[in-house]
Design a binder for these strands. Sequence first.
DNA 1: TGTACTATTTATAACCG
DNA 2: TCGGTTATAAATAGTAC
Lengths: 213, 213
Amino acid sequence: MTREKVKLCHIANDSARKTTFKKRKKGLLKKVSEIHTLCGTDTCAIIYGPYDNQPDVWPSNHEVERIVSKFKRMPEMKQSKKTENQNSFLRWRIMKSNEHLQKQRNDNREKEMTDVMFQTLAGKSLHSLSLMELNDLGSMIEQQLKEIDKIQSDANSIMATVAGSSSSAAAAATLLTPTPPPPPPTDHGVMMNDGDSYQAAAALMELMNHKIL
Amino acid sequence: MTREKVKLCHIANDSARKTTFKKRKKGLLKKVSEIHTLCGTDTCAIIYGPYDNQPDVWPSNHEVERIVSKFKRMPEMKQSKKTENQNSFLRWRIMKSNEHLQKQRNDNREKEMTDVMFQTLAGKSLHSLSLMELNDLGSMIEQQLKEIDKIQSDANSIMATVAGSSSSAAAAATLLTPTPPPPPPTDHGVMMNDGDSYQAAAALMELMNHKIL
DNA sequence: TGTACTATTTATAACCG
DNA sequence: TCGGTTATAAATAGTAC
């Protein structure tokens, strides 16, 4: 979640997993403690560490027992209302992800519109633009492309997140509209500081063709 | 935790508490889900909302039952090792807070040293410094003061955090060495762009006297 | 009440000793 | 492995609709 967006899937490396577990357990217990303090809720958590048969519990064994028995005393019907919590949580996440994805697609479409405008501009007056102007245009387009790439990669990462978030991955994935595979990582670098403007124009056009994914 | 550092104590306002609860429950369940996925741990959580007799559970009632019974099957001795988890967590936080406080005091001492240097410099050559130089010196000292104020307020906020973090507040507070009350919020603004340098020097000295809290 | 936004604070992955 | 640091992602308090 920092330095790099993390893929939400089981960490293969043993020691890395243990390290992450320790850090996250600390954070998790803090959060549990905070929600308890701030909102006065009965809250408990049980976590079995990766190498230890003794779970970490919060706030204490005794409280866990109390809360669990309170939970077990509830009429079966009321219990069942929330029984599929994991599934509904997953569904909620998928929904949110879809919303986000849709939003990103809209943004994407907007970018593409802008890009078409650039193209039109370029097509109309390519022959009349100075080398300097072509360079500027190239930079602007390159920036657009980078933003689009980013959005694409974000979208893919969301897909991965949802897909990896539970054993219902397959089911989850089918709820999402298919997305084309990510484009190969391309470096759209453009730097036209010499050569004639025809070369520049050619490079620019190639750049634009790249854009139409 | 944003817009404003939050005081870790029960939220009095009913609707604010409910709102916070909802937001934090969402975040908490996400964290639980993530640690489960990333680290492959058996994890469960039960949270009783403020207005509902039905708790939110994760990942599902069934899993909670399974994990709890796994927990209950453990030999009593092993269980008891972690029984006072809440207390130890609190102790851990107090320890961490103390470490942080100590560190901040060290930093503070360092700043004061630097300040003394400034003072010496000023005392030695105040009469020979130009107005411009006095302005510069004033700005530097003002910056130092702001940093010191910030550290002070951070330290106080930590005290508040620890003191408010549980019903053991009183006991916790006594574990901390006493801290002087925060200095009144002073605006150390200095801007000497006219008047003679004697006035400037006087203002500077006053500023410095403020510093010696 | 619920959703959305934004400024900030917090959590934490990668790194280092 | 452990504790500390840093850069960055994520959570969220306050706000507005």
